[in-house]
Amino acid sequence: MNPGSVPAASSSRLSPLPPEPAGFGFGRTVDVPLDRPGSGAQDLKKKEKELQAKEAELKRREQDLKRKEDAAARAGIVIEVKNWPPLFPLIHHDI
């Protein structure tokens, strides 16, 4: 036997893999269950209540910020819009 030759497939201990379609997985569908075992309507209602509470908190904070901005505008305070993000606190670029 030639040491550089590849052994025949019949002498291999591994079974060949089934052929897969080309396409890198695009177009394949995967079934993902939307509900976990043990979760029910109680979990959904709990999450819904949490989301409603967060939404109410965000609305309250938005109204508070708007009220403060309006009060500052009525007082004559000019809020300068910065040209740079807060990552550059020492640099001010005024075009």
Rank of each mutant, 00 (worst) to 15 (best):
N2P: 14
S5P: 02
S5V: 06
P7G: 03
P7Q: 01
A8G: 04
A9T: 03
A9K: 08
S10V: 15
S10A: 15
S11M: 04
S12R: 10
S12C: 01
R13V: 12
L14H: 06
L14T: 07
P16A: 14
P16K: 11
L17P: 09
L17I: 05
P18T: 04
P18L: 03
E20D: 01
E20K: 11
A22H: 08
G23A: 03
F24E: 15
F26S: 14
F26P: 01
F26D: 13
T29F: 14
V30L: 13
V30F: 07
D31K: 15
D31A: 15
V32F: 07
V32H: 05
V32P: 03
P33E: 11
L34W: 03
R36V: 14
P37V: 15
G38R: 07
G38K: 04
S39H: 14
G40V: 01
Q42W: 11
D43H: 04
L44H: 06
K47N: 11
E48I: 03
K49Q: 15
E50H: 04
L51V: 03
L51N: 06
L51G: 03
A53F: 08
K54Q: 15
E55I: 11
E55P: 05
E55R: 13
A56L: 12
E57C: 00
L58W: 00
K59N: 11
R60N: 02
R61G: 03
E62T: 08
E62Y: 06
D64I: 01
L65Q: 05
K66Q: 14
R67W: 05
D70W: 02
D70I: 08
A72C: 02
R74G: 05
G76S: 00
I77E: 11
V78A: 10
V78F: 07
I79A: 06
E80C: 06
E80D: 12
E80R: 14
E80S: 11
N83V: 02
W84Q: 11
W84S: 11
P85I: 01
P86W: 07
L87F: 02
H92I: 09
H92T: 14
H93Q: 15
H93D: 12
D94L: 09
I95R: 14
